[in-house]
Design a protein around this nucleic acid. Structure first.
Lengths: 282, 282
DNA sequence: CTGTTAGCGCGTTCAA
DNA sequence: TTGAACGCGCTAACAG
């Protein structure tokens, strides 16, 4: 329909009082005494007119907008969905709304997104950088929007400049691999995804480090690049070996082979993990 | 950080002109002549000050906010992720930002979400109703925010009141089942999910209708409720039959059994389908 | 102590 | 080209 929104003034008029009083009442301002009768009149009027205060007008006066944005490189990747979900829950508990935007891992797209978010004057941005993005972050820095970089490092900046939340991918892969080695495995596969993703490279390094430390030779054939399908094979597999499907969302699955038996698999441990080695972090 | 945002006034001051002129220039208003020299001065000033116009202030004056909201009942369900992704792409192409909010299929949560969206004065809402939500939509109707109900019907309202985008679940399941029957199958499984979801009930009805029409008795044991795991079994399965994993996101997979062989599976056809029967609409 | 007036913030737009 | 009013909620300051 698009009727006009009811304004404070409308409510004041109907309650035969001033906008100031209405504002005080509706915002429950303390140390401001209003007669019960008037308060009631105002509340009723607001109700009847379906008054909903505009966050726009509030925001103008330097008040927080109550909006946090998060930019995501891959919308339909469940890893990011979960991350966003977690963000949204915390934000909502604090009274914030979350806007999320997909950047498609495309720096140009990302810049567009950031610009529109700044136009919207969001209170803060949680930014999961697209791969190989570079100067986009100059923008947010010049403007000064509070921003946290999450999940992926930014290649061209030192860690001093921005606030980060990252996982130590190297260490996790290292420890995961070590765990398997300590269990007595020596044929350890590394299931991965696109090589250009920095966090995956880190994990590969961790994997290699653990192997080297145990004097297990690094065998490139054991590094399998996704998207992995069910039925994919490891080099020495017995014909009936079978892997869990990682779909197109495999990151690190440090798999171990027991020759002659089916393969098991285990992921890395991380903040989104469900118990040790039970989670695939892709 | 949080330096103040640069305002129109700042730009005007630096360019030694008025805010009006700056506004006109920056918005590229036609039929308004400005000397090239002044225009250049303004553009430069805006650049130097990192001016980004506030959508808030623009919005106050009745201008569109450039924000569309979509409420989603399940954030991490890839079906909805894809839907949101599609919405986001179209919206962005039109210059809109998309805000998405998770309602957790919880009517109370949904109401909170809707209220905050209205506060934010979003231009429009795409609403995927939570299951069993009822009076929440009175709100948006009273207020008059342009709204489209998507993907799920609202139980307590006739279709006349709101604008809908729905899939004909009955027909799709009916046709899918028929297709399998015409291929000569008679043992047709129906893999489904929570029974209270209306669209799944509709699909079950379509499935039953097709069976009945072909004089195939309806066998409740063939209706499998998810979450389905790989290795789940159909009643008459040979021991080596194997199903595709539907994870926790199975809706309708009309599976067919070829006794003595592994089972195949096919989904329903819908707007998000990738070709006939190639898509699982859960 | 209770309620009102008035002006701010910022981009838009009419009138001059 | 520009001054100034406007839209809407907030709030300091003032009046009753």
């Amino acid at each position: 329909m698009g009727k006009q929104y009811t304004t404070l003034k409308d409510v004041a008029r109907r309650a035969h009082t001033s906008t100031a009083t209405v504002s005080y009442i509706l915002n429950g301002v303390q140390d401001r005494y209003v007669s019960d009768e008037l308060r009631q009149r105002v509340l009723t009027a607001a109700q009847e007119l379906n008054y909903v205060k505009s966050a726009l007008a509030s925001g103008l006066k330097g008040k927080s907008r109550g909006v946090i944005a998060i930019t995501v490189p891959q919308f339909t990747n469940i890893f990011f969905s979960r991350l966003v979900l977690a963000v949204e829950q915390v934000a909502r508990a604090q009274g914030y709304v979350v806007t999320m935007c997909n950047t498609f891992d495309d720096p140009d797209r990302e810049r567009e997104v950031l610009e529109s978010l700044i136009q919207q004057r969001v209170d803060g941005i949680i930014l999961i950088p697209s791969e190989r993005s570079t100067q986009n972050y100059e923008l947010i820095r010049r403007i000064g929007v509070p921003t946290v970089i999450a999940e992926r490092p930014m290649l061209d900046y030192g860690y001093e400049i921005y606030d980060y939340i990252l996982i130590d991918n190297f260490d996790l892969a290292y420890r995961s691999t070590r765990y398997l080695i300590e269990k007595g495995h020596r044929n350890i596969a590394f299931l991965t995804w696109e090589a250009r993703v920095v966090s995956l490279q880190e994990r590969l390094r961790g994997y290699q480090a653990a192997l080297q430390e145990a004097d297990i030779p690094y065998r490139p054939e054991y590094v399998l690049q996704g998207p992995l399908q069910p039925g994919g094979r490891m080099p020495d597999d017995p014909p009936d070996a079978r892997y869990a499907s990682a779909g197109n969302r495999c990151g690190i699955w440090v798999s171990f082979l027991c020759p002659g038996r089916s393969a098991g698999a285990s992921g890395t441990r991380g903040p989104h993990s469900r118990g040790p080695f039970g989670f695939c972090h892709w």
